[in-house]
Design a binder for these strands. Structure first.
Lengths: 137, 137
DNA sequence: TTTAATTGCTTGCATTATGCAAGTATTATC
DNA sequence: GATAATACTTGCATAATGCAAGCAATTAAA
């Protein structure tokens, strides 16, 4: 009998946490969403220094949850291209609000004030722009 | 020398994850933000079944991060009242986007369709309403 | 056509975090 | 003074994470 871990509750906050409630998953999403990264090696190079086994584990979990999808690189047989699914792209608003919150409360935030203003006052346009950029990948 | 854990990066997503990037912290925030809960015992009763030591640990961390504040209950010397700080209340947009995302992608979500529509089309009003309710606590 | 490099992992093991059950400290109530 | 309520703390087992090394498949170089 395949042991499927039963969910702790049906609360929507809990639903989300059971998928990406850890210190690494959203960093992979960030790299795909904002940084133009697409490969295992790309993610590994991030400033936080994720371990190889943790990265492999998160990629697998995110793929199982259908937030990302893995495809062979047609130009390079040793590589795989990861990209966001529609479900993954639907996290753009969540991610932007997180960026906004940190921009407001972290004195060391690197996010330009102009960008924070755009997110606050022009939300939908910013979302559309990011989505559009992701289309072409 | 007090060992302060150095941050992994200055990325705003990482900043947020280092504060509430785990499976429990946002559930405490949820209880304070949406459920009208205010005490240790309240949080303990939640449907997810948080362990007593984990709850104590998260309350301490959230207080250290100044997302919540702990105060003696003037009416009951055995109780403490926890509440959201301004910084904590600023997570309302993040939480609403999470609820929205889960509402869209979890077929078992308990959030009424009407509420999801309100969050999508009337965001600021919903945020204001929740903020106002929290004022009176 | 072997040889080396690139890429994406897996494995083993130490450390840390989580989960569970039980116990303690403080204040309030009887 | 004894009991209850509330908010924790502690000890220990299990699980997750972190680190270093190794491996397998494909590509590029000699």
């Amino acid at each position: 009998m395949p042991q499927v871990k039963k969910r702790r509750s049906d609360c929507p906050v809990n639903f989300a946490l059971e998928i990406f409630g850890d210190k690494w998953s959203l960093l992979v999403i960030r790299d795909l969403m904002f940084m133009g990264k697409t490969t295992y090696g790309d993610f590994l190079k991030g400033p936080e220094g994720i371990a190889t086994n943790i990265l492999a584990n998160r990629l697998e979990k995110l793929e199982t949850a259908e937030l990302i999808i893995k495809a062979a690189d047609p130009d390079n047989g040793t590589k795989f291209i990861y990209s966001l699914t529609e479900r993954g792209k639907d996290l753009i608003p969540v991610m932007l609000e997180i960026v906004n919150w940190s921009g407001k409360h972290d004195p060391k935030t690197p996010t330009p004030k102009e960008m924070l203003k755009q997110i606050s006052t022009n939300r939908q346009a910013v979302i559309n722009k990011i989505r559009k950029k992701l289309l072409s990948t």
